[in-house]
């Protein structure tokens, strides 16, 4: 069995677990819905585009923390020991990264749909914003996957993950908020948009490489 196939099997295992224990999946969706509903009640649809953008990314951040957090926390010690004996850590973490990417993409879609439904759609180029939001969701899910792996080794895991993650996520969020103004018809200098997109992709790549290098040290107990 090749490496790709093993990663695919691990990915499918996570997916099947998710489908069988649907409470956590729907739990996160409910979390998105109630957050946006509270925003809708407190703000109504008179949010200007800057506020809309900021709220969208903050929601995205918290949704990501909730969706990704359990990826390592739900694994019991015994199960980790079992994985430890049958797969190598790089493949295991790659499968987790992939799985969280897909999960976050789904949550991203839910977030987008609900945000547009409740808070209106102030963007002038909807497709650009959708693209940017998926790019952002990707970066967020990758960073928080690695942090969930780190936090799962400590006590007070959920809150610890937020503490560990916030300082690291600031630059990405700033970049994304800046970049999404492009979808609000702000004019950028030539090539700047492409440059920022490439920069974000490079950051994502760096996170993946670091995760694959560092994860093996985390998982032997």
């Amino acid at each position: 069995m090749g490496a790709t196939q093993r990663i695919w099997t691990l990915f499918r295992k996570d997916w099947m677990l998710e489908m069988r224990q649907q409470y956590s999946f729907y739990g996160v969706i409910l979390y998105v819905a109630s957050t946006i509903f509270v925003l809708f009640l407190t703000l109504g649809d008179n949010a200007d585009s800057v506020t809309w953008n900021a709220l969208f990314w903050v929601t995205q951040l918290f949704v990501c923390i909730n969706a990704v957090a359990k990826s390592f926390l739900q694994e019991s010690r015994g199960r980790m020991l079992y994985f430890y004996s049958i797969v190598n850590p790089a493949e295991y973490v790659t499968a987790k990264l992939l799985y969280n990417l897909v999960l976050m993409a789904i949550m991203n879609l839910v977030n987008l749909v609900l945000f547009t439904a409740f808070m209106g759609n102030p963007t002038s180029s909807t497709w650009a914003f959708i693209g940017i939001s998926f790019l952002g969701g990707m970066g967020l899910s990758l960073i928080f996957t690695m942090l969930a792996a780190i936090a799962s080794k400590a006590q007070q895991q959920a809150s610890l993950m937020a503490i560990l993650g916030f300082p690291l996520i600031i630059p990405q969020l700033l970049l994304l908020v800046r970049l999404s103004r492009y979808a609000f018809a702000e004019v950028f200098r030539d090539g700047v948009v492409l440059q920022v997109v490439l920069l974000l992709l490079a950051l994502d790549l760096a996170i993946v490489v670091l995760s694959v290098i560092l994860f093996p040290f985390l998982w032997k107990d």
Partner: peptide, 13 residues
Amino acid sequence: RVSAVYNIFAYAM
């Protein structure tokens, strides 16, 4: 071990 991993990851970010 865990804090060393976080230290390296955070510094690189």
